[in-house]
Computed example of a mutant assay.
Amino acid sequence: MLLHVLKQTGRKFDFMVGANIKGFDTMVELSDESGIAVFEGDEYLSSPIDRRPKFLWYKPQIALVTGVAWDHINVFPAEEVYNHQFELFAQSIDPGGSFIYYQQDPVLQTIAKEHPELNVLPYNEVEASSEGGETLVACDGEKFALKIFGHHNFQNLAGALLVAKELGVSEKDFLKSMRCFEGAARRLQILSEKEDASVFYDFAHAPSKVKATVAAVKDQFPQRNLLAVVELHTFSSLNREFLPQYKGAMAAADEAVVFFNPEVVAHKKLEEITTTDVEQAFAQKGLKVFTDGDKLHQFLAGQRLKNSNLLLMTSGNFAGIDVNALAGEVLG
């Protein structure tokens, strides 16, 4: 969102982010001319021999943290260890710098109170309404139609707006710029759609992200049946001890499917997990669990979406399923 707004408003800036965004040929640009650098922070380890989070190298003047939800159990074996990395990140901000954080996150609430040397700016969620399938946000009596939807996106919008204001962008210019923002690749990306059905593709894999993404699609299209599919692919999601974190993550879906590949579990040298382990962890009535990519493809290709949405979530590739071809099949 920030990259898009800065580009739309004619700012010169450097950047480094992990997602592909329409209008950018590359996702890294560094120069000697820019007065602004927008970096996407990452709490994952810096390298195999340096287990410190990558975001501790940045020393920002403005920092935005959208939430803290335990992940990467292979690096941070306990939730407390994981949470502490964000305290270390707050300590790395330049004294007098801005710490912008999602106000409803209890971990961030505690961190914010411990740093009076920072300009602490909490945010909640931009007020938005939906009319005719459009998301509308008001400012100074004017309504701006946006293409994004979902509570997590409205929260991120509020955080990005605060950063933009710190950089001298007005709220009205920010919202004007956001009207043509289509989101990042694999962030509620629409693979195919027709009048009464859509196929969405999303990078969501951690429990909090899965929950937010499923809820976003259901909230935006409450009248449509939602078939949500998630692949367990990361070290954390395939860890037997971490699996219970997924309890209720797909509760907003009318039909829920989980896929994992036992070969990936073995490749990561993790303890074997079973379909029963997954069913018990998600604790969702009617949950379908697949461990064979061909059978998953057969099941999904057999769907014919009518007044329905299909949501595909993975940081992997569903054992090689061509999701674009699948989207065409289910809407055919």
Rank of each mutant, 00 (worst) to 15 (best):
G23I: 10
F24E: 01
F24S: 01
D25R: 05
M27W: 04
M27H: 15
M27T: 13
V28H: 08
V28M: 12
E29W: 08
L30R: 15
I36R: 03
A37F: 04
A37Y: 02
F39Y: 14
F39D: 01
E40T: 05
L45D: 13
S47K: 08
P48L: 13
P48E: 12
D50K: 09
D50P: 03
P53K: 02
K54W: 06
L56I: 09
W57D: 13
Y58W: 05
Y58H: 15
P60M: 09
Q61M: 08
V65G: 11
V65Q: 12
W70D: 14
W70G: 06
W70M: 11
D71S: 10
D71P: 10
N74W: 03
F76H: 04
A78H: 15
E80W: 02
V81L: 12
Y82D: 03
H84T: 04
H84C: 01
A90F: 10
I93Q: 12
P95M: 03
G96T: 10
F99L: 14
I100L: 03
Q103A: 15
V107C: 04
Q109H: 09
T110F: 01
I111L: 10
K113N: 03
H115Y: 15
L118M: 13
N119G: 00
V120Y: 03
L121E: 14
Y123K: 02
V126H: 00
S130F: 09
E131L: 04
E131A: 02
G133V: 00
A138W: 01
A138H: 12
C139D: 05
D140L: 09
G141I: 09
K143I: 00
